[in-house]
Structures are given as C-alpha cells and as structure tokens.
Write a protein that binds this DNA or RNA. Sequence first.
DNA 1: CGTAGTATG
DNA 2: CATACTACG
Lengths: 272, 272
Amino acid sequence: MGAIVTLPLAENSRPMRVITVNVNGIRSAASKGLFTWLAGQNADVVCLQETKAQEHQLDKSLHYPAGYHVYYHDAEKKGYSGVALFCRRQPDRLIRGMGWPDFDGEGRYLQADFGDLSVASLYLPSGSSSEERQAVKFDMMARLMPQFKRLRQMQRDYIICGDWNIAHRNIDLKNWRGNQKNSGFLPEERAWLDELLGAAGWVDAFRVVNQEAEQYTWWSNRGQAWAKNVGWRIDYQMITPGLAGKVRGAAIYKDQRFSDHAPLTIDYDLPL
Amino acid sequence: MGAIVTLPLAENSRPMRVITVNVNGIRSAASKGLFTWLAGQNADVVCLQETKAQEHQLDKSLHYPAGYHVYYHDAEKKGYSGVALFCRRQPDRLIRGMGWPDFDGEGRYLQADFGDLSVASLYLPSGSSSEERQAVKFDMMARLMPQFKRLRQMQRDYIICGDWNIAHRNIDLKNWRGNQKNSGFLPEERAWLDELLGAAGWVDAFRVVNQEAEQYTWWSNRGQAWAKNVGWRIDYQMITPGLAGKVRGAAIYKDQRFSDHAPLTIDYDLPL
DNA sequence: CGTAGTATG
DNA sequence: CATACTACG
C-alpha cells in the first residue's frame, strides 16, 4: 500500500468559523441538542442571543462546552434576554455592554477582541410586543448607529453577530407586502439597515456569497410558519469592509430545530 | 329462541353512585381523559375539587357532560381552587359557600339538595405551602366543626365529599411516623377528624366497607411517590349516620391518572 | 413535580 | 405558540 500524503494547509488558510444563533432560552435549546450539534461544528466563535438565564442557573458540564472560553452577559431581569460568546481562543479583551445602563441591564451586547479583530454578540430589542418596546427599539437603533460609524473609523476588523430583529429587503421575508406595518419590517427600520450597509459602510456577510430568496433565519411559532417556510432573515453577521473579500461560505442550519431561530454559520479566510 | 326475561330492579334498590375527585385543574384532567372515564361510570353525583378555572374559561362541549346538571363554584383568583357538582337529577336547591366571604371567595363548598338528601363538594385549604396557610386551615376547621354539628341536628341526610387535606389514622398514609409534624397529619388535624367522626357523629363512608391499609387517594408529584405507592388517604365521603347502613361498596380508581388524586366512588342503597 | 397565571417575544 | 418566572399545592 502506498503512503498517504496529506498536505497541511498554511496556518492562515484554515478558515475561521463564526456561528450566531438566537437560542430562545439556552436551557431549552440545550435540551434540543444545541450543544451536541455545536460540538461537531468546530466553530472558532459562537455568538448566542436570548439565553434567558442567569449564569448561576446554568450547568458547568452542559452550558460551558469543552475547548471554549465561555462568557455570558445576562439581563438583570430573570428569564429575559441575555447574550453569550464561546471562544476557542482566549480573547485579549472582553467588553460587556455599550456603556448605556438601560441597554446593558438587558444583556444585549458582548464583544471579544482577538488582536485586531473583534467579534460581538448583539441582541437588538424586539418591538413586536408593544408601542413602548418599539420606541425602545428605535431609541437603541438611534444610539447604535453613531456607535457603528465610530467603529468603522477604528483600525480594526469587526464581526457583529446577532439577532437584529429587522429584515432588510423584500427578499428577506416571505410576506413583505403584509408586513410593512409590522415591527421588524417598518420603513424606518429598513432605512436604518440601508444606512448601516450604505453610508456607514458595513457589509452583510451572508449576502456577500448568497443572493438567493427565502434564506430565512427566523419563523414564528404560531401557525405553520416553519412547515410552510414563512420566515424572516433577521439574524446577521455584519462585518467591516476589509473582511468582505474573506467571506468564504455561509450556511443556515435547518436540519434540527433548537429554537425559533436557525443558526447562521459563516467561514472567513482569516487566521485567528 | 326463547324470550329473554329481565327483572327490573325495584326503584329504591338501584344504588346511588357518588364520585368525588380532586382534579388538580379540570382542563388538565379533561386532557387526560377524565370526562371519557366519567361517561362510563353512570354516577348520580360527581363532586370535583380544585377545578382551577373560572367558568367562562371552560368549554360547553367538554366540561358540561351530557345528561348532567352542572354547577361550578369558582375562586375569585384565577387558576386557583374551585369546586363543582355534576348532578344527574336536578337539585331542588343549590347552596354556594358557607356564608363566609373569605372561604367562599376561594370556591371551597358547593351543596346540592335532593329531597331530604344533601350532597356537597368540599375543598379544605392545604396548609403545606406556609405557616399562614396552615393558620387559615386551622381557622376554617374551627369554623366548620360547629357547622357540621349543626347539620347533624337537621332532619336530613348529608354526603359531604371532598379533599379534606387530612389523613385520619396511621393506616391512612404510608409514612405516618415521618409525617407527624407535616401539614395533613398534625395531631390537631387528626384530633379534629376524631371529633368529627366521634362526638359530632359523622361517618367515614369508605371505612364502613373497607378497613384495609394502603387505601390512598393522593400521591405527591415529587419523586416516585405514585410508583412506590407512597400515598395519603385525604379524600373522603363523610356521611350522616342514617346513611352508614346504606353504603354498599367503595372503590378508589387507579387504572388511569387524571390528577395527583384518585377518584373515590361510593355506592349507596338509596333511591334518588 | 405539576397546574395554573403572567410577561415577553 | 413557546420559554421563561411566579404562586400554590
């Protein structure tokens, strides 16, 4: 038998894999196999939203996957919101929140820095439950825009992952016509993403490699939304332009259902 | 073929069947087949406790079994307590509560009169959740005793069915030794039943025909209580002495599980 | 542990 | 409709 020769890839050609998923309760998602699935994904960074737990309620054995540095940033209110990061490599720095007490108390932003790359888990408020919450969402959007513009001036690369709770274009949800007055597809919300992805210079990493319709990441639990694929694309990895050319592939995982959102995986041609 | 002759039973020899069951949520019990089972029982009166619903939340088709006059007496607080009566024959009179606003607002007593017989559904407070609730239970017991003594002076027969939340004797629960300091088997509670069944002259209908041990009607949901038959007999049909000789049979139904309590059926040699 | 209610999405 | 928390038992 001849010897099998494997050519090792150059260090900087192994892709960096980033997964983002709104888990709608990390304990629920865990019970549906999220961590088993993650163990096979070989992700470098995993960004979670809506953990709906406080760290003291979690199991060391279950919710702290082996081989990762695990960071939770919880809401003060029990069972509400919360984001997390699982990082293969130990970050040089961790940033919890935006420095805004109202936003930060809801556990909505967690950032890890690795050299000149930052990866963040963001959970934008939903506006669907009331007028008041829609006002909070608009307020957060207004405060976040200058922040995102500022980050673009830094000499750093950013990957801001998360549940942005806004579908961008008609192609990004099944019933765009019927949802123009609904939170998540309001003209002001779409214009905000237009600005982020236009004047502010950010890039929707998924769309770099995939321009197809019906690429949804969220389906309502009501009715037969999942079965009929009546979905929305509201989970994104937003990246600074220097990374755009390094998006190698993107995938939405629908074979299992861990929550009402599907995981979004993007591979980048980056060393990490 | 020869003619089949069936001898009709005399009117007053058909037994009257009374069933009592704490349903721990009538909607939950319904989903587990309570009403399907009841339809085959041919009961004359069914006494329910812990309906945990207000009448407007119930389905006419499901929670009002055909062939019965149905009466619910709900707690003011949603999802809490509540008793009900299903009566094959229309009662001459219906009595809601004891005339005590605190007790009656919790939906704990409902009585139907048929000629000189009264059948009631009673739900005595539980004392297990706090010292305060144990005090309420003791207070109710103190007020009920003179009431039950008064009823004994009436020229009527009474069947007071329900969840009395007290096991009477050592034989009436699995771990009597370990429960002597626990609500439901406190010395004061047992003494109260001693008085009811002694000086006050009431009769525990089940014990008229069954003196065996391990005749439980309730099992904790915690641990393996049901599987290990670690139960308590806390549901009774308490009757006036004139009915004692008419208890024909008694049964606790354990083949299906509608709630944490089992239905208690007693047949009486009474016309109704 | 299990049935409810409520908030939130 | 689904995941949480809370009350109550």
